[in-house]
Design a binder for these strands. Structure first.
Length: 699
DNA sequence: GTAGGGTTAG
């Protein structure tokens, strides 16, 4: 092996490292243990050249290994040593292929392997397992199969490591059955092989198979280790298999395995996904070290349990603990911001992503699109979408859904068209999004055509949600009778949601008969919501059947169903304020009610007339007026008006549908106070501006 | 000299 000197600065004095007397006798220990930086390595290298020790191939290999594998950022150095070797042997190739696979690029590793095949160096079992790993990373099934053939031909098959990487490669490339065949064909299945097979099922989300294989391990008595348990716990979480999960949890406690951070993280994740967030939190709190994955798991646990405020609180704790969030953490954080309508926090997240150069992965991009859409900033959603390096059906669906709920039905359909031109196949959720676009935009014929096309052209079996969307499209457009017949002719049993949709249309179009029937159906299917009775009561009120209206409300009370209190949120300066209707315990009580009073006075002067038909029926007219003027939405808007500078857009999210009076009032407020007001109700957005609303009074 | 495991979206 011929060697060329690596450029070093001649002016630099040699450090003590290179003058250690025993250096020639134990070069390996010296280099591996003492070189902490590229600079150290550089000096050892210089010394080796000077003393001609580098002529010893073992020493060169050790040097290479230090640069390529042990030091974090010395790949260039390793490459330059490598390129100066005349005839690298198998060992040298192995070092390079392995380090390229992990550190630089599996593709480079593969190209080097090709070069190796043209050389005299013979691949051994180390080479083959490394290159199979590279194939996994590249999802290069074809190449992996070729290596497999080579392995069989050369008889490396009985090597445990090679077998494992083979299973791993097939599983990663989605060829689970082949992976299983390799696994089943092993003469001796070591625990490592079982773990690889489990990992394969995990990668392909075959959670049932993970549990099945684990039971088989128990039955055959092959034993298991911490890696096995980590996989099985993850599967238990996805399957909500608390029984097995708890069994493993007990095992972990009994065997003092709590120092294993990955294992405990999967335990935390399992408890959270099985709905036991408190238990998850207890384990999380008791961890003696928490890395970014542990924090992310707990944050996502809260967000999936619909405890988004706690998710954001924990995110703040994470920052206080100086653990840097990654792309995955931010997905859960953004989801929580979306649910809460926490625009400021979410915007900060995007700023952080840019500043810290986090990768805009498909998941993260999709979470951002959804977050902005759910905060009513659909332009920002589009901007994020356009910046994403790669998109998939999830990102397109999020965008289409966002456009639909923000009143841009036509835009949603345009993106749906564009998506198909880009050869991204819509799935059943995409169709829920486009159908809802048609419904929000009042596009009846488009909706009918899409529904047919979904079945005929895309082979997607309509689910209850698709039928529900069709009922919504027809009902909102006033085609109540057609919607009713549509439900009657459904091939699957309609659920309460479908009837509730029809009931809401009956309210909008004052159809008493079908409204009554809809409520009957809802009652026969599930415990009705307070809103169901209120809709029917309001239908009666709207056609002057006051007695009936009161009767329905009494019925509701008799059954012990309370009216869900209206609740509105507004985020000001990163703080979320919560208001309830007739709230007597809200923050800044007097200030809020005074502001509301002034606000109502000013819009009345501008011509607003209270709409009290839907208000409490037993009340006198002036009481009704007072009652509607204290709806949570009005309190939140009034508070927003006095707490922000003129011209600032107000963003409100609320738990119920916007009522007719609040809708009228907010239109007027937007004009009188010259503000844009964005209201997110339980299923869509209202962008109020200059006295009108993006929904065109159609919601 | 080699591996396998934990968190994420519509």
């Amino acid at each position: 092996m011929a060697l060329t000197a690596f450029p070093i600065s001649p002016a630099k004095p040699l450090t003590a490292i290179t003058t250690i007397p025993q250096f020639p006798h134990n070069p390996k220990t010296l280099i591996l243990q003492q070189c902490k930086t590229t600079r150290d390595l550089n000096q050892v290298h210089a010394h080796l050249i000077k003393t001609r020790l580098l002529l010893n191939p073992t020493i060169t290999e050790n040097l290479l290994e230090s640069a390529a594998i042990l030091l974090p950022n010395a790949m260039d150095y390793a490459l330059s040593i490598f390129h100066n070797l005349d005839e690298p042997d198998t060992l040298v190739y192995n070092i390079m292929i392995r380090s390229l696979t992990y550190k630089l690029s599996p593709l480079e590793a593969f190209l080097l392997f090709k070069k190796m095949q043209e050389s005299s160096a013979e691949p051994d079992e180390f080479t083959l397992s490394s290159i199979l790993k590279a194939c996994s990373k590249l999802r290069a099934l074809r190449e992996g199969e070729q290596i497999h053939a080579h392995i069989v031909k050369c008889g490396f098959k009985s090597n445990g490591f090679v077998e494992n990487t083979l299973i791993h490669m097939y599983a990663t490339c989605g060829e689970l059955e082949v992976a299983r065949r390799v696994f089943d064909g092993l003469p001796e299945r070591a625990r490592m092989a079982w773990n690889s097979m489990l990992a394969g099922y995990m990668k392909n989300k075959c959670w049932d198979e993970v549990v099945k294989l684990f039971h088989e391990m128990l039955k055959l008595g092959v034993g298991f280790d911490e890696v096995t348990l980590t996989s099985v716990l993850t599967a238990c979480g996805r399957l909500a298999n608390l029984e097995l999960g708890e069994w493993i949890g007990d095992y972990i406690e009994a065997n003092r395995l709590k120092g294993n951070i990955a294992l405990v993280t999967s335990l935390v994740d399992m408890y959270a996904k099985c709905g036991q967030v408190e238990t998850a939190r207890r384990f999380f709190d008791r961890m003696d070290r928490r890395d970014v994955v542990a924090w992310s798991a707990m944050i996502s646990g809260y967000s999936q349990a619909n405890r988004c405020r706690e998710a954001l609180d924990l995110f703040h704790d994470m920052q206080k603990a100086n653990v840097d969030p990654n792309e995955v953490t931010m997905v859960s954080v953004l989801y929580s911001c979306a649910v809460l309508g926490a625009l400021k926090t979410g915007k900060w997240v995007e700023f952080y992503i840019k500043k810290e150069k986090l990768k805009l992965t498909v998941n993260l991009g999709t979470a951002l699109i959804d977050f902005y859409a759910k905060c009513g900033c659909i332009d920002s959603s589009i901007e994020v979408f356009n910046r994403m390096p790669s998109t998939n059906v999830f990102s397109w669906t999020a965008l289409i859904q966002g456009l639909a709920s923000n009143g841009q039905g036509k835009g949603a359909l345009e993106y749906f068209q564009l998506m198909q031109e880009k050869n991204i196949k819509p799935n059943n959720v995409t169709f829920i999004a486009v159908l809802s676009a048609c419904s929000h935009a009042g596009l009846v014929n488009e909706g009918r055509n899409l529904f047919t096309s979904m079945i005929k052209d895309f082979g997607i079996e309509p689910r209850i949600e698709h039928y529900g969307s069709m009922v919504d499209i027809l009902g909102r457009a006033g085609l109540i009778e057609e919607a009713y017949q549509f439900i009657k002719n459904m091939p699957i049993q309609p659920n309460a949601v479908v009837w509730r949709t029809l009931l809401a249309s009956c309210r909008a179009h004052k159809n008493v008969e079908i409204g009554e029937e809809s409520l009957k159906h809802i009652i026969s299917l599930e415990t009705p919501h307070s809103g169901d009775y209120i809709l029917l009561s309001n239908i009666y009120a709207s056609v002057d059947r006051r007695e009936d209206a009161i009767r329905v409300r009494d019925q509701m009370r008799e059954k012990g169903i309370e009216k869900a209190p209206g609740c509105s949120l507004i985020e000001l300066d990163g703080v979320i304020y919560e208001f309830f209707a007739e709230d007597k315990a809200c923050p800044h009580l007097e200030e809020v009610y005074n502001a509301t009073h002034d606000m109502m006075k000013r819009i009345k002067e501008a011509g607003y007339v209270p709409y009290t038909t839907d208000a409490r029926l037993d009340a006198e007219e002036d009481e009704k007026e007072a009652s509607v003027s204290h709806h949570s939405e009005k309190l939140a808007i009034a508070f927003g008006l006095i707490r922000t500078l003129p011209g600032t857009t107000l963003r409100i999210s609320k738990n119920l549908r916007v009522c007719t009076d609040c809708h009228n009032a907010t239109k007027m407020i937007s004009k009188v106070f010259n503000r844009q007001i964005v209201v997110r109700d339980w299923n869509r957005f209202h962008h109020f501006k200059e006295g009108s609303c993006s929904c065109n009074d159609y919601w």
